[in-house]
């Protein structure tokens, strides 16, 4: 909690300097948040190139509108809100493009390949387990957009219910419910690969 307070204090100081046309301060903001924003966007769009472009666009928009940023919200929340809006726009564009091309399976489909379950599952080794990582990424992309957004923000980027509620402009109860539904959907998709002790 103290660390979060310090981060917010440091962010506030950086924003004040950035508002006074201090490019070095804005540079510092980008360095702090580009990885978080990129990871979030990467799992929302179809290609790494799109993710890179949208991350750039997020910070360009932040640069252009830094003077309108109200310090009531955290910088983290504000940047994720910009990124979320860009992802929604991108999703609409992709949907329009897809409608001209070959039909694709619906988002809700359980389209993960049904491989043999990985018996060597170990939570400590998850990041290194490439096969399971691929299954996880596929399961995330197969989620409906609303569920994917909340699970990315809550379980992967570590935002609070309140922050997500502010980003998506949704009631807290809706956010909690979506997170549970998203987790349950992920569990159902990954169940064949999860080695349980029960």
């Amino acid at each position: 909690m103290v660390a979060m307070g310090n981060t917010m204090h440091a962010d506030f100081a950086l924003v004040q300097r950035a508002k006074a046309q201090d490019r070095a301060a804005f540079n510092e903001i980008v360095l702090r948040y580009k990885s978080k924003v990129y990871n979030y966007i990467y799992r929302q769009v179809e290609s790494a190139a799109d993710a890179e472009d949208l991350t750039q666009e997020t910070f360009v928009r932040a640069y252009l509108s830094i003077n309108s940023f109200q310090s009531r919200a955290s910088l983290n929340t504000w940047l994720f809100r910009i990124a979320t809006n860009l992802c929604i726009d991108q999703g609409r564009k992709e949907k329009r493009t897809r409608s001209f091309l070959a039909p694709r399976p619906k988002e809700e489909d359980n389209s993960i390949e049904q491989d043999v379950p990985d018996s060597s599952f170990d939570p400590q080794e998850l990041a290194l387990n490439t096969e399971l990582g691929v299954k996880l990424e596929a399961a995330l992309r197969a989620l409906p957009e609303k569920l994917r957004t909340v699970i990315l923000l809550y379980d992967i980027e570590g935002l609070s219910y309140e922050e997500i509620s502010a980003i998506l402009d949704c009631p807290l109860g809706t956010i909690k419910s979506r997170i549970f539904n998203a987790r349950s959907a992920m569990r159902d998709k990954l169940a064949p690969y999860l080695q349980s002790s029960v």
């Binding site: 990885s35 987790r183 992920m186 349980s196």
Partner: peptide, 21 residues
């Protein structure tokens, strides 16, 4: 079993590989 799998799924999400630009 559901609870166990749910906890494993959450652990998996928390340990997702971090990417960078």
């Amino acid at each position: 079993l559901k609870v166990e799998q749910l906890k494993l799924t959450i652990d998996l999400l928390h340990d997702t590989a971090r990417l960078d630009t």
